[in-house]
């Protein structure tokens, strides 16, 4: 499980936009049409390669955090990247983006990379939000934008990986303080790319053991 860096992601957006499905598709490459309401937290991890380096993405999907100030605060603070998800078939989820973004900007560290995701792109017939609108919103707020489908897996990989690339670039530029774990970035235990096996889910025990607070 050697990795060069570990990036912590969070997934945010209204209920039912498919946050957990995106996570599942990315980490397990499967789609589960009926998903229970997330209680507490779900978490997944997957190894990707950028620039020849193994990078572990750790994605946190915490439910119900928006109701409490204490949670919002800390949730954003510890992440290097955020996927802000809306549902292209539900206009209201798009309308709420501003609120989400305000929260994120207020509580996160200023370097956090935010990617805007219009999910459920397979449901073209029920589309309520035009792709152009998503693009415009992203442009206006300086986000990266992409339409995805957790069902068909379209663009899911790209969404996660592009975000990772941007974080990686920022690391190269020296924007992030990588020695400070509170930024959501961790340097791997050692830089040898020995193991390299990509794993999903439940891999946190090792990482947690290695870390020290």
């Amino acid at each position: 499980m050697a990795y060069a860096y570990l990036f912590k992601y969070i997934i945010i957006g209204d209920t039912g936009v498919g946050k957990s499905c995106l996570l599942l598709q990315f980490t397990d490459k499967r789609f589960q049409p009926v998903h229970d309401l997330t209680i507490g937290v779900e978490f997944g991890a997957r190894m990707i390669t950028i620039d020849g380096k193994q990078i572990k993405l750790q994605i946190w999907d915490t439910a119900g955090q928006e109701a409490f100030r204490s949670i919002t605060r800390s949730y954003y603070r510890g992440a290097a990247g955020a996927l802000l998800v809306y549902d292209i078939t539900r206009r209201d989820t798009f309308n709420h983006l501003t609120t989400w973004l305000e929260d994120a900007r207020q509580h996160s560290n200023s370097n956090m990379v935010i990617m805007l995701i219009g999910n459920k792109s397979d449901l073209e017939s029920r589309r309520e939000v035009k792709k152009e609108e998503g693009e415009a919103f992203a442009r206006e707020h300086g986000l990266v934008f992409m339409e995805t489908s957790a069902k068909t897996a379209a663009n899911v990989e790209e969404a996660f990986i592009n975000t990772a690339k941007e974080i990686y670039e920022k690391i190269q530029e020296g924007v992030f303080d990588i020695n400070n774990e509170a930024n959501g970035i961790k340097i791997g235990p050692q830089h040898s790319t020995g193991g390299g096996a990509s794993g999903a889910g439940g891999a946190g025990a090792g990482a947690a053991g290695g870390g020290c607070c």
Binding site: K8, I39, V41, T62, F68, S74, Y75, A208
Partner: peptide, 17 residues
């Protein structure tokens, strides 16, 4: 009091909920 901040957050979220 888990060392992983996300776990601590999850615990707090859960208790509050």
């Amino acid at each position: 009091n888990h060392p992983e901040s996300m776990v601590r957050i999850a615990v707090r979220t859960l208790t509050l909920n």
